[in-house]
Design a protein around this nucleic acid. Structure first.
Lengths: 207, 207
DNA sequence: TACTGGCCTTCTGCATGCAATACTGCCGGA
DNA sequence: TCCGGCAGTATTGCATGCAGAAGGCCAGTA
């Protein structure tokens, strides 16, 4: 079994705090206070902070510690297309053979989503859907980049699944991707995947 | 002026040691010995090691510290196309206006390369060429991913610029990319850029 | 010989200590 | 009033300390 290190748990905890707004954009992080609050010492906390800065969720200010990265709509405009392209790549780099078992399972997840009201639960299943879609990609480096980048995007996604209309539309897009895969149309599926992300961004930008 | 932290210098130093073979693939890193050798304490060293593990140059083995990531030709087959796609994206996401000043400077660098014998110096100028090409990309997250990924590739590049023939060919490809940019043919330039990487990989795979 | 178990050493992971730098508030002068 | 300098505090960045886990060694056994 894989032993868990403190810094891993701390990265998770701090990430959720940034995403749910308990740590606000542009605020400085006080290592002593946060360590006390989390019940750990500064050492593993700093290790986690450094990791989060590498991922872009925090920014390191040498001599002044760490700040929560600024919240900037322009950043969303850059992150969504980036994740879209990365996921599209991961899909295109999955061998067709490995894809064959996915469409059925993807559709089952889509059904699950259709039964859920818009909200964080739906967003969580959406994550699982995308994770499943890319689960057979044989390029671990690309997957690492995706895993490191997607949390950034979640800050802006908060609004996203707020709308039931967009949720229904997105679920349809998911079904479309699964259908394309079933027909062996990988380029088509990849294009639809990009569209899914682009439309999500467009939805956010309207408010 | 930007204050430098120890962990930054250590990341650089350890990276070069992995790239030049002073730290061999699959070897365990002894924090006490390495810290002593580098003249620092274990704390900033561990911070650097964690960063390098995030980038994939080391792997973290919880409870057993860090290992130098294995050297695997298959990994090169995954890294080169990945970097190719990332750089291509970065180029396509540069605004044409910002690109206008580049071709002349790129060509000057290419001349510089043409005058150099194959070897690490040439490789360094090649790096500057690519960095200049992408210097105007307005997507900092993408640039971060590129900067974090390219060092991995350098382990496999060692052989690459060994051949004078390939070096000349590659410089020609660079000129071709600059020419395409001059004509405003961004898709063309991006395609040539991918080809440049793909051919580099092919050259490596032959030995 | 192959294997097991226990002892001992080494090393990691986390906690704590310490010095230098950055911040805050206040005061005096322009 | 606004700005600059100064003293005191707070906070970071790095060093060191410590407990427990991992790994090696060797004797004893099947």
């Amino acid at each position: 079994m894989a032993k868990r290190l403190l810094r891993g748990d701390l990265i998770e905890e701090i990430t959720t705090r940034v995403l749910d707004g308990r740590l606000l954009a542009d605020t400085r992080i006080n290592e002593v206070h946060l360590a006390r609050e989390l019940g750990v010492s500064r050492t593993p906390l700093r290790e986690a902070l450094i990791g989060l800065a590498d991922r872009g969720l925090l920014v390191a200010a040498p001599g002044r510690g760490f700040l929560v990265a600024p919240f900037d709509p322009d950043e969303a405009r850059r992150l969504y297309p980036l994740v879209a392209e990365l996921e599209s790549l991961a899909l295109r780099w999955t061998s067709p053979l490995d894809l064959s078992s996915l469409p059925d399972r993807l559709d089952r997840l889509a059904e699950e989503m259709a039964a859920l009201p818009a909200g964080p639960d739906l967003s969580a299943v959406d994550d699982r859907w995308h994770a499943l879609l890319l689960s057979r990609c044989g390029n671990p480096h690309l997957m690492r980049l995706i895993d490191q980048t997607k949390p950034l995007l979640k800050r802006y996604e908060a609004v996203y699944f707020g709308g039931t209309a967009r949720a229904a539309e997105s679920i349809d897009e998911h079904r479309g991707i699964a259908a394309a895969l079933r027909e062996g149309d990988l380029p088509g599926a990849s294009a639809l995947l990009i569209r899914n992300w682009v439309k999500a961004l467009a939805y956010i930008e309207r408010g």
